[in-house]
Every structure is written in C-alpha cells, then in structure tokens.
Design a protein around this nucleic acid. Structure first.
Length: 295
DNA sequence: GGTAGACCTGGACGC
DNA sequence: GCGTCCAGGTCTACC
C-alpha cells in the first residue's frame, strides 16, 4: 500500500513531528534519515502493520510493506489524518500571531498541529505517564507497556503496537506496578483500560465531541490520574486550546517572562495568555522561550 | 475552596 | 557503593 494524503496548507511534517515529545515514545520511531516517522499500529481487523510516513507536496505519503484490504486502508487513512491533524486550520491563529514577535515565525514554519497517537486512549495513557516523573521515566514506562502488552509486528518481533484497552484491562495492578514499573499510576492505567474496554467510557468519541470545551474538560478530569495539567494537555491534543497545560516548566518560564523571576501560580500562567482566547494553550505552547531556556 | 501529605522513581549530591 | 534529598502532578483527607 502507498497512499498520498493531502493536508490543509500550510503544512510541514517536520513541524508536526517535533511539536512535542510524542515522537520519542513507542510505537513512534522517528526516521532521521529520510524525515517523517514509522509507527506500529494494530488495526480493527487484528492485523499489525508498520506505517512509513514521509513528507509529500502539501501532504504525506503513507506506506506499508504488505497489501491491505480496502477497509484496512481506509482505517489507516483516517488514523493518519487524525494523528497529523491534516484537516486542521490555523488561519485565525496565524493572523493574531503575526503581530506578536514571540510567535512571528509560527505561520512560516506551519506550526500548530500537535502530533497525536492513533487513539485518544493511547494519548490519555501516555499523558498520565508524563505526570510527576521525569521525561526519561515516561519513555521507560511507555516502552514497558508497549513491549509487555502490545501486539507484535509480524515482520519484526521487536516492534509492537500500543496495547489495546482490552489487553491492558486483562492485566492487574501488581503486574503494572512491578513489571511495567508504573508505580502509583498502575491503578489509574488499569481503571482507564477497564472502563474503556467495557465501553462505559468512550474515549474515542471525544475526538468528535461537540461539547463546549469546559464540559469536555470536566469529563476528562473525571478520569483518575488526570488533573489540571493533564486535562489541558489532552484538550490540546483534541484541538481545543482554551486552557494552558500548567506544569513546573510553565510556572518557571512565565515567572521569568513577566514576573521578574518571582514565584507565580497557575492563575498567573492562565492570565498571561488570557488575551489569546480560544488559542491560549497554543500561544503558550509555541511561544519563543529561547531567551529563558538559555539564560 | 484551600492545603498538607502521600504516592514512586530517577538523578544529583555528599560521604 | 550507599544513603539522603529533591523534583515531578494528582489524589485524598482534613480544615
């Protein structure tokens, strides 16, 4: 299979890939030689495929090494379109950003799309695994889940897809705690997998929800292990930028940018980007913090 | 509604 | 090499 998927212009695969750290989490693998990335996915049919995704003219090429059924191809096209936000539009954000020096380059770089996993379940688990730990800890925990519970890719048994809710739901807290070394997060991950597998929580419906962002946020906050930071991060992945994902880094950079290095709280971070309205989270995310990073 | 303490791990640091 | 301390968000109990 080799398929071209168009994107709403402007588009840069490189900007999506490097929009945040997701590319370093399994089953993503960056293709540093050719650009783009590889991703192992378990399809609804049960087939496990390795997707090769590379930049094309205003879009991407999606390839697999095996022939697929039309249904499987259609599923892959829908998933990749979602993962890369190919149909997302940022024109009104770019218009606002044009008058802000710290965001002056976002349109030229075609920034705005944030790399997503194939399912919102996967993104939610990964987000929980970013909380209260170092980035290296997140990579280790995600790798452990994928290796221990993900379906193997037939062409390379070392590659695995992200585990399905049903697979994770069949695990237990002790195994997740000790073998996957999720620590205190183990019961959160198990509960999420069990509710998703049972159908009592339809995470994938959040992708197309027409609920107001505040209401959607309430539903996300109801997930154990998801607090204010994680909810804002997940809303950004859903294309809702009304909240800033305030973590220790946000407190630090906002403190240095606008408060002379004095301690600030979550409300101060939200206030700093209040004027960006529905683009608040994205303005924070793409803000040029270079001076602070190197200070 | 606000706050303190617990949760778990890895890294930095001192000995 | 070992022990101690701290950072990283969220939950729960308590006021």
């Amino acid at each position: 299979m080799k398929t071209y998927l168009p994107a709403r212009p402007p588009f840069s695969l490189n900007s999506v890939v490097h929009s945040h750290g997701w590319i370093r989490l399994a089953p993503f693998q960056e293709d540093e030689t050719n650009g783009g990335f590889h991703y192992v996915d378990e399809l609804s049919s049960g087939s496990v495929v390795l997707l090769y995704i590379h930049e094309a003219d205003q879009g991407v090429w999606v390839e697999t090494e095996v022939e697929l059924t039309p249904v499987e191809e259609n599923e892959i096209c829908h998933k990749v379109t979602w993962m890369l936000g190919l149909d997302q539009v940022f024109e009104s954000f770019y218009e606002l950003a044009a008058s802000e020096p710290k965001l002056a380059k976002v349109a030229k770089k075609a920034q705005g799309r944030i790399l997503r996993s194939a399912t919102f379940f996967e993104d939610t688990i990964k987000t929980i695994l970013t909380t209260n730990t170092s980035w290296s800890g997140t990579i280790r925990m995600v790798n452990a889940l994928v290796t221990l519970y993900g379906a193997s890719f037939p062409g390379d048994s070392l590659r695995h897809a992200f585990p399905t809710p049903a697979t994770l739901a069949n695990s237990d807290v002790e195994t997740l705690r000790t073998a996957a070394r999720l620590g205190y997060r183990a019961p959160y991950v198990l509960e999420l997998a069990q509710t998703a597998a049972a159908g009592s929580l339809d995470l994938e419906s959040f992708k197309t929800s027409d609920l107001p962002t505040a209401e959607l946020r309430k539903q996300i906050l109801a997930i154990k292990g998801v607090g204010g930071y994680a909810a804002a991060n997940l809303l950004m992945l859903l294309g809702r930028y009304d909240f800033v994902p305030v973590d220790s880094w946000a407190l630090k950079v906002v403190s240095h940018e606008w408060h002379g290095g004095q301690p600030v709280g979550s409300a101060d971070v939200e206030q700093a980007f209040e004027s960006w309205g529905e683009w608040k989270g994205l303005a924070y995310w793409l803000w040029d913090w270079t001076f602070i990073e190197t200070a």
